[in-house]
Design a protein around this nucleic acid. Sequence first.
DNA 1: CACGCCAGTAACTAAACGGTTACTTTGTCG
DNA 2: CGACAAAGTAACCGTTTAGTTACTGGCGTG
Lengths: 226, 226
Amino acid sequence: MDKAGAGAKARRGGNGGRAQRAAQRDPERTRASILAAATVEFAENGIGGARVDAIAERAGTNKRMLYHYFGDKEQLYLAVLEEAYIGIRTAEKTLNLSDLAPEQGVAELAMFTWKYFLDHPEFLSLLGTENLHRARWLRQSTRLKELHSGFIDKLADLLDRGKAKGLFRIDVDPLNVYLTIAALGYFYLSNQHTLTTIFGRDLMDEANLEAWKRHIVQVTLASIRR
Amino acid sequence: MDKAGAGAKARRGGNGGRAQRAAQRDPERTRASILAAATVEFAENGIGGARVDAIAERAGTNKRMLYHYFGDKEQLYLAVLEEAYIGIRTAEKTLNLSDLAPEQGVAELAMFTWKYFLDHPEFLSLLGTENLHRARWLRQSTRLKELHSGFIDKLADLLDRGKAKGLFRIDVDPLNVYLTIAALGYFYLSNQHTLTTIFGRDLMDEANLEAWKRHIVQVTLASIRR
DNA sequence: CACGCCAGTAACTAAACGGTTACTTTGTCG
DNA sequence: CGACAAAGTAACCGTTTAGTTACTGGCGTG
């Protein structure tokens, strides 16, 4: 219907200044919009509840294209999962901990993780789905195996500096610190619906979100200080 | 095949000593075995991935009985969820915190929660499924709404005693303490597969499990002490 | 400038799925 | 005993689902 409307995506660069209006035919855009639609569908319904037809419709295309670009439902899911992990790994790189004082650095890491989880509920949901299936797709993905988190090494340096200054206990384990931060953020957000129902407190209220962020920082720091 | 073998379930009590061998026809047992099979199936596959035929087969019966006792797939799922919540609430009652010293009590609560999660992976999985669907069935269940956790009140008393003795900070919030304990246990276990894959450490190794239990206690206490 | 290739469409298919029907078996109670 | 109710079975049904086929239309290249 509104084919002309949107993007004005130009394929400038690389091909000698041939700036021309985007065609109705645009493989990159089609592929991207299928991926975006699939991310929503898989995040909302899990892998068993996701519908291929729904993805195609949401993407504004049809099933044939979906199979053309991604092979089948499972490979599409894998592409979604890979993109989600690439997203957080990319974001992680923007965080520079090496310039900060140890306590400040841990606080920044905690707040960064919290904000990322808060801004990307689909990532949390996909993690949940992937764990339900015992990381079946994650394990099978060569791309993702290479893409390990840089956090742990950075965090280890930060903690070492804190230990040297006598701020942190010497037996503090970097992975445990990261797991602590991730656990506090993940559980609060991913289980918000059952928790809100049972405890009758709206966890997504602005004030409560802010309080929990401070709680994560406080708990993390309290657990590593001498 | 082995119909005669197992249960020797007797319907003693309440019916005037009429102790007789369990018949092949046993509504209670059939219902229970459907429920048990459904718990496994829903926990393993989520609601969208669970198969009614698989449940019937696993239960050693057929679909007609499943529909006879539970109505439809969604009501069966609700029954499974209700039973899971009843399970943890029942277990909670065995825990007596009022006789313990404040720090000891918090430690007991943390270890109890950890052990319950560790022993009941299906409960964690069902929680995940329920949250994926925004607590749709939990909210709709009148039975579960009445069944709120007794923990928070008990914990509040315990914390108050600790505050009076000058052990805990006065601004400590009972729900936050419980969320902290639950978060640390839930995340570690429910995300074990992706975490193990990415960080290359077997989180379910006996030594690591024990270390994480101590970690939960330590973190929780460190976060509430003055 | 036409030819081949790739993006895109819509209608189709076979299998799987949730749910039902028609029927048999077993235990209970007047 | 016999009749009624509830437990149990298996075959069946209509719909939904993942995946495919047969086709159309636009774009770059030789």
